[in-house]
Write a protein that binds this DNA or RNA. Sequence first.
DNA 1: CAATAAGTGGACACAGTGTCCGCTAATCCA
DNA 2: TGGATTAGCGGACACTGTGTCCACTTATTG
Lengths: 205, 205
Amino acid sequence: MDALSTCSVIAYDPFMVIGQPPARERADAARNRARVLAAAEELFATKDARQVTMDEIARAAGVGRATLYRRYPDPASVAAALLDEHERVLQEQLMGGPPPLGPGAPPAERLAAFYTAMTGLLERHLHLALGAETGDARFRTGAYGFWRLHVLALLTEAAAPDPNGLVEVLLAPLAPELYQEQRRRGLSPHQITASLTWLSRLLNT
Amino acid sequence: MDALSTCSVIAYDPFMVIGQPPARERADAARNRARVLAAAEELFATKDARQVTMDEIARAAGVGRATLYRRYPDPASVAAALLDEHERVLQEQLMGGPPPLGPGAPPAERLAAFYTAMTGLLERHLHLALGAETGDARFRTGAYGFWRLHVLALLTEAAAPDPNGLVEVLLAPLAPELYQEQRRRGLSPHQITASLTWLSRLLNT
DNA sequence: CAATAAGTGGACACAGTGTCCGCTAATCCA
DNA sequence: TGGATTAGCGGACACTGTGTCCACTTATTG
């Protein structure tokens, strides 16, 4: 069994707090949650995600400020909740999907497949990624911990020297700001995945 | 002659604005500039650089807010001005210093030397780097443009496929937040440079 | 030693934050 | 079904930081 199976993915959700049986969410609470997420999705897509404020989200959702704060401590958490759904799909494919994304292919190929999948995710949901995983908040995300364990396992399997030193280096080019910058400079998604695939050769030694 | 020699390094300094002959800085202005820089250096080193405010810098320097805004639009610019001095030294070595940092060594070795020099810079001035080059502000720095041209030249010389696609990727692991994260996880500066040196092998194809 | 304008800094209007607390209404149970 | 309970709501508040304006100060120049 994979080491990843022991990694719990952290999402900002009041009902995932350990030891707190849901007890069931009230109907109006659920409705407001949906409103908030829908309004936020719209906002993040429309304007620069890093400038979206709590105030704005609350207003757009037609909800009081305190109601919003009840669930999410800041705009990044809202974006993270929205991203989480998409990331979870990839996480499952990495653990149990068909190779080369899932287990069964050589490490270099799996890394390249992972890179390709991640750039796909970034291309589709860049606004959310910029809102959620910018700067050093990125390292504190549950998702980052997952990617990290995955790549760490690949490095170890490939018998790379000092996997712990290399993990962060190999994950660095997946920073949302970097992807944005590359796109801004006119690189196509395909060009970016090609570069990352080339980088994956490192594991072939 | 190196392509780098055509790259102007942008620092936030009112007297570097194109077409504005200095005319000479007034004595009190110079004194306040020094006060601001000294106070800021202290502040950035003391607390989390990303939380230093203009208000705080002005107060610490014993200077009015408007005086501070006259020269620097935000705290990042102050940090950039402080960093600039140190970065300039490295820039000169890259252009005209002895190999492998300067011209004359094979690209892979020059890249490794560059990585080592940069991590040295980060280790010594991480607080300033975090204050100046965090998130996507990093890409807008004059210094980044310089590093980018340097690495681009090395990639081209090494006949790498699609240098434009690879530059940002190779510069990604030098993001200050990343260095901070690696150090936080217990990696030594030496471990980090070793990993980056290993990465430089890519140019050896 | 005046004239000049570069330089200064207090004050202001504004935007966003995070929390408190009285009220509303969904849920539960008799 | 209808009253009690309490989760959930949201307006209001105090606070911090921003960026700009403008009347005052003072270094410089002839």
